[in-house]
Design a protein around this nucleic acid. Sequence first.
DNA 1: ACCTGAACACCGTTCAAGT
DNA 2: ACCTGAACACCGTTCAAGT
Lengths: 256, 256
Amino acid sequence: MLVLPSAFVNLCIFTWREKSLMKLQAPKHSAPRPQAEPALNQKQIVQAALQLLDEVGFEGLTMRNLAKKLGIKAASLYWHMRDKEELLSLLADEICEPMREPDRTLSWQDQLEILGNEFRRVLLAHRDAARVLASSGAPSGPNILRLTEILLRTLLDAGFSSKDAAYAGFMLNDFIVMFVSEETQFAHVPAESAAAASYNAKNWFKALPPDQYPSVIALADDLVESDSNERFKFGIMILRSGLESCLAHRKARNQI
Amino acid sequence: MLVLPSAFVNLCIFTWREKSLMKLQAPKHSAPRPQAEPALNQKQIVQAALQLLDEVGFEGLTMRNLAKKLGIKAASLYWHMRDKEELLSLLADEICEPMREPDRTLSWQDQLEILGNEFRRVLLAHRDAARVLASSGAPSGPNILRLTEILLRTLLDAGFSSKDAAYAGFMLNDFIVMFVSEETQFAHVPAESAAAASYNAKNWFKALPPDQYPSVIALADDLVESDSNERFKFGIMILRSGLESCLAHRKARNQI
DNA sequence: ACCTGAACACCGTTCAAGT
DNA sequence: ACCTGAACACCGTTCAAGT
């Protein structure tokens, strides 16, 4: 869902690397290639990057490792893309490619919920995908742009003002990206280490001074381990009913 | 507010660097120093780090730069702290130090809102503070722990179950950390560059194919630039009323 | 047009050695 | 107890040079 992460502004506002008004130019209209295919194109690089991501995670996704995987030198990558930021943008868009659109005849609430579930599904499909989206910073890709469109359209159709729709869009996007980043943070530590650490963490909380931290101690179990699906559902429910009552409030105000 | 970021689990669950069950040990009971003060202690390092952060931002906050600022060699830092992760944890706690507690006689909604505003205030007080909190990964510090306690206590007092309180705590924390990360992302680019880029971004959106992206185009202005205070208020309002109706729903269900 | 060699300017971290 | 020298194993990126 959402699609316009911090990333969004990222691209919009001159990336802090000081070099990118240029990045907002129209997408490369893939130049007609009269001759044989070149050894390598952007698409192949992005797909190799996605594979590398699944193998080694976000930390291991370096330009050098990617080059190695492709059997070329790191410097060669810079012929096909401006920098790592662009790679991450392309990768983010690639990750969002399998997103399915919700049925437009459903209520806006259900459409948003489905969009949220879809976005999470797509993010869970690749290792550290949420971190890629969190750091990608560019809505330039067609898939992300399409998602943004669906999300914003749904909010506008529901009756939100431009501003509210934009704000809500950010919120929904951020929630999901953040949520999945968290829930997958330890997806790749060996199971027994994770269990031991979780046990350890609970005990650590419970050993805190009870007069100072009674609530933390009482909630230690729920803080340390939780059913991700349930927790996600809770979050979506909160946002859903929050948006609902916002809409009701605005409408009531307008009818006075 | 919130206080238990992804970070939270981070520490809890064995950090992915594979070396940290140990990190959950009780905090170093500062050994009684019989002699003169050593040249350097942890507190001074953390304060220097905070200063360095304000000067050069999160990117520039490296162990090597920090050492240079302190007039020592980078290797020396490892005498006072395990690694950079620990530095970030300590720094996160230092950032949260000025948090004020909301008046307990207020409604839980108002207490949460005040807690949210306070957290944002504290994060805005230092450059890239939100990024530090997002990446700190450790609730071990006393300030963060105190905040967590207040937040969870407020939620429990409001009548939320343990699970709901824990989930809501994560949500509120994540929202604020993410929000401030976003709103400050371009705080340090020269004003005229930011303005130019924003202008550029709007035009880029507006030049998209109107049949494919009508909503994105319609909302271009609101997506690219927005009043942060207003947007934050919107988010808090959504969460507030979402939590309210969750609570009402649970209570109604329990009374049947 | 596409790729490489070789370098530049960095990182975090370790560890034997100094005092 | 505390700090340094020197190295290790990396990063992203540039650019002249090759083909």
